[in-house]
Design a binder for these strands. Sequence first.
DNA 1: CCTAGTTGTAATTGACTGATAACAAGCTTG
DNA 2: CAAGCTTGTTATCAGTCAATTACAACTAGG
Lengths: 183, 183
Amino acid sequence: MTTKVRLTAKERGDEVLRAAVQAFAASGYEGTKTDEIARLAGVSQPYVIRLFGTKQQLFLAALHSVCGRIEEIFREAAAETPELSALGHNYKRLLSERELLLVLLHGFSASGDPAIGDCVRERFGRIYTLVRDLTGASPQEAREFLSAGMLMTVMAAMQVLGPDAIPMPWAEEITNTFGQDAP
Amino acid sequence: MTTKVRLTAKERGDEVLRAAVQAFAASGYEGTKTDEIARLAGVSQPYVIRLFGTKQQLFLAALHSVCGRIEEIFREAAAETPELSALGHNYKRLLSERELLLVLLHGFSASGDPAIGDCVRERFGRIYTLVRDLTGASPQEAREFLSAGMLMTVMAAMQVLGPDAIPMPWAEEITNTFGQDAP
DNA sequence: CCTAGTTGTAATTGACTGATAACAAGCTTG
DNA sequence: CAAGCTTGTTATCAGTCAATTACAACTAGG
């Protein structure tokens, strides 16, 4: 457990950010209370606000964090095998860090907020471009790749995909088709 | 405009439901206030609550409504040409009723709420099954079809797809690949 | 060792929001 | 036309939540 030690603002900020990613992944932007993030991080609610200014800025920080991690995973996968099919294989890694895709999904949902919309458009565009650059995929190939990722994302949100999946025949049927490329 | 006429509870309920679909599409489940729905429907906020019981039940009603409409669009398309490519062509129709896909997306995001999760799993499973039944598509074909739909959905949420799209080079590149089937 | 900066909390607040209650106005049926 | 049912509003509450303020505890540098 986290002991009652004083940390630098940077270190504590990182801990709060990790807690925020967990909380936002579970409850979304509007649904998550700063109080809950504070509880997860083991600090007081006002301190969370002081470290990040506003709840919105904290969500933006969480969004940048998960997008950076997603890019990192793609880079690592491409370093081994720079092909789209290899990246696809690594969606499993994304699903094992379930909060990555979920925070991104909540970012899409909260795009009505202009600041969040700007952030999401920028980061998702970067991911698309990165996928193309890393693999040399055509726009259509990259689109099919990201499409599959989006279906996985919403299935993860519905809790029919991943380790804690609620068993659903139709979902298992879909899940079995992942990884099977077009002939 | 809607005049100040007394309607039956059923009729007024339909108006409120339409307003709710618009509002939830724009702001999501947690982000939408019952007050805003009431304003859109031209009634008082307490009446919205009395007609549907709770905000959650109203959201569930909105979810059922949009899923029913999505199924209807697929059925109509399949009645003309019962092939997956024909259904895909009709994603344009879904995008023209932008709120359909957006409410569904917000349903995914709000799946952490058990009642909403149950509803979303049931309705999305029904849509998957319907697509297969209407077109005779294989699980993999249906998965690819729904994958493309999910990417369109998140792009619509990001406001980079559809009539009021914010122009983004990467988004236009992706958009151009829709409708191009694998060779 | 003491003072100035940093890390952190307790107390509070003001705005918001879903829901309830009490009441008013309109329709309809005998 | 009157009584009872339906439609709809106003007033209000009880709880919630992000954010501010004031203060306390710790730590490093001179």
